[in-house]
Simulated assay, not measured.
Amino acid sequence: MSTNTTDIFTIRAAPGTDIWRKPPTTNICNAPTAIPPSTRSTGPLTSFLSACASFSFPWRERYDQAGILLAFRRRSESSDSGIPPKWIKTGIEFYQSQPQLSTVATDTWSDWSVTPLLSSLPGAETEQWTTILVEKSEDEHGKSIWVYRVVVDEQTGEEKSRTALREICWVYGLDGEWDLEVVAMAARPEKEVKDGEEKELVVKVRGWEVKWEE
């Protein structure tokens, strides 16, 4: 079973939007997601296989970002529309004046890893397509979530190579029954945007696909 679209859709993020949790008090989750709503994909955590999409946007402000969000909720709390108790977001983020491959994993609080998007085009406001894959994995040590940057052949759409960015192991150590919601997201955390500049961050998404076990 899968949720997928080959169409390009757009997410617009206003200034002051973010998904982030940092002690002692920061807990924000107001970034736009799942636009259009048909791209929202939900199911039991135990059934999740993978999520993949390509993103393109004119990064300019610090922390401008777009990517895939995985939100985890206990089965008994799945109808709650508030901030999810645990989540993962991964994609591209503009930090230290360059685009980065970024992953945030939030169990109790968030932790964050970045690595430069080395194949990015020169200039801070250029756009390019970058493909991110989030995939369930299992080896002799157990189960985990792996995050990859994937290079895709622009002519055939086939995968040419993948680079491992992060392994997240706490997901499959959760007690009880959990549901998972997978959506595309965008955010512009900077609240003050320069006069004369586009206020919203406009992100294009293509090749959105989420796979679940039948």
Rank of each mutant, 00 (worst) to 15 (best):
F48Y: 10
T10L: 12
A51S: 15
L49S: 13
P58I: 11
W87M: 00
F55Q: 12
G16I: 10
G43H: 10
S54K: 11
I68Y: 00
T26P: 01
E61M: 08
P44K: 13
P24D: 15
L45I: 10
T6L: 04
P85I: 02
I83Y: 08
K86N: 08
A71S: 15
S41V: 09
Q65N: 10
Q65A: 14
T39Y: 06
C52M: 13
P84G: 05
N30T: 12
E77W: 00
I28S: 12
F72Q: 02
R21D: 03
A13T: 03
P15S: 09
S79W: 01
N4A: 06
I28R: 09
G67K: 08
T42E: 15
I83F: 13
P37G: 07
L45Y: 03
G43L: 08
T39Q: 10
S76A: 11
A13I: 06
A13Q: 06
A71T: 03
L70N: 07
P37C: 05
S54V: 08
D18T: 09
P24Y: 11
T3W: 03
R12P: 00
R74F: 00
E61L: 03
R12K: 14
R75S: 14
P36M: 13
N27M: 08
R62M: 01
R21A: 07
G67E: 10
S47G: 06
C52G: 01
R62C: 01
I19F: 11
N30Y: 13
S81Y: 00
T6M: 03
P37H: 05
A66R: 07
D18Q: 09
R60E: 09
E77H: 03
A14T: 14
N27K: 14
D80N: 15
R21Y: 02
Q65K: 12
A14D: 13
L69E: 02
R62P: 03
D7V: 02
Y63E: 02
T3E: 01
R12H: 05
T3G: 01
G67V: 10
P36I: 13
A34P: 13
T39P: 05
T10F: 09
R40P: 00
A51F: 04
S41M: 07
A51D: 06
S79V: 03
R21N: 10
P15R: 04
T17P: 11
I8D: 03
T25A: 15
L45Q: 08
K22V: 14
S41D: 11
I83Q: 09
S76M: 01
P58M: 08
F72A: 02
S81L: 14
N27F: 13
A51T: 07
P32W: 04
D64R: 04
P32K: 04
G67P: 09
D64K: 04
P44I: 01
P58E: 07
I35S: 11
N27I: 09
T39W: 06
I35N: 12
S54N: 06
F55G: 13
D7W: 00
W87N: 00
P84D: 04
E77G: 00
R60S: 07
I35E: 14
P32S: 06
P24T: 15
A66F: 07
F9M: 01
P37W: 01
